[in-house]
């Protein structure tokens, strides 16, 4: 694996539900669930700081020790956020084997400044900050780096230096980023039509009524 697998100790949750989950969050722990490998799902809580640190470092797989007993490799499957989207409130983890093939989102880091994008009116438009790939759990790379200084107008998934055993899910001709020209009229944007406020959209139902009336007539 590209990054070292962090070891995280979790505690089983005896009581589940929103009220008990809120209490856990206030105490600096995150409610989580672990499932997979044909075993029963278990409700656990994990230290928020420890988990966020692992996720920010790009960890996809973590070594989970439930109540300090044994150790399972778990893939972080899903994250749930609060309503404003800035606080993690719950996470899903699934037990995996090192030889299991999984689908994950890998971040794509673009280094440097594209020469073509430095021209007047040219903008580097990044379409995908991450790509979906399938690979063995043991082959998960940390991130994919690409230097875009000498890139052509378009950088596609096929141009990325993917490690052996890592296959992108999307077609290879899909864009990661491209250099586009910002339209002149869009950039100016101040010339407004004098009668613009009077313009009204077409009413579909009214047209139908008129058609019906003319047919009857």
């Amino acid at each position: 694996m590209g990054t070292e697998t962090p070891n995280i100790t979790v505690e089983t949750r005896e009581k589940t539900g929103s009220r008990y989950s809120d209490r856990l969050r206030r105490a600096g722990r995150l409610p989580a669930v672990i499932y997979g490998k044909g075993q029963d799902p278990i409700h656990v809580s994990v230290d928020e700081h420890e988990m966020l640190e692992a996720l920010h470092q790009g960890a996809h797989v973590v070594d989970i020790s439930v109540d300090g007993k044994g150790s399972d490799k778990c893939l972080v499957k899903d994250l749930q956020f609060g309503w404003l989207g800035d606080n993690l409130i719950h996470l899903d983890m699934t037990r995996v084997d090192l030889n299991e093939i999984v689908t994950i989102n890998l971040p794509v880091t673009l280094a440097g400044t594209a020469k073509l994008a430095s021209a007047a009116g040219a903008v580097l438009e990044v379409i995908r900050r991450e790509i979906e790939v399938t690979c063995k759990v043991s082959d998960i790379p940390g991130e994919i780096k690409y230097d875009i200084t000498d890139m052509d107008e378009v950088l596609t998934i096929g141009d990325l230096p993917l490690p052996d055993g890592v296959t992108p899910v999307l077609e290879l001709d899909k864009h990661i980023c491209h250099v586009t020209l910002v339209h002149q009229e869009e950039a100016e944007g101040e010339e407004t039509d004098v009668n613009a406020d009077d313009a009204q959209p077409e009413v579909i139902t009214k047209a139908k009524e008129e058609e019906d009336a003319s047919e009857e007539g």
Partner: peptide, 28 residues
């Protein structure tokens, strides 16, 4: 020119309410 729909089903709408939080279009 201000934006508006090209075609609509009905010319006018009721006011509605916005008592809930956004649960779509709420992330970058």
């Amino acid at each position: 020119m201000p934006r508006m729909p090209k075609r609509v089903k009905f010319r006018k709408q009721m006011r509605g309410n916005m008592k809930t939080r956004a649960n779509r279009g709420n992330y970058v």
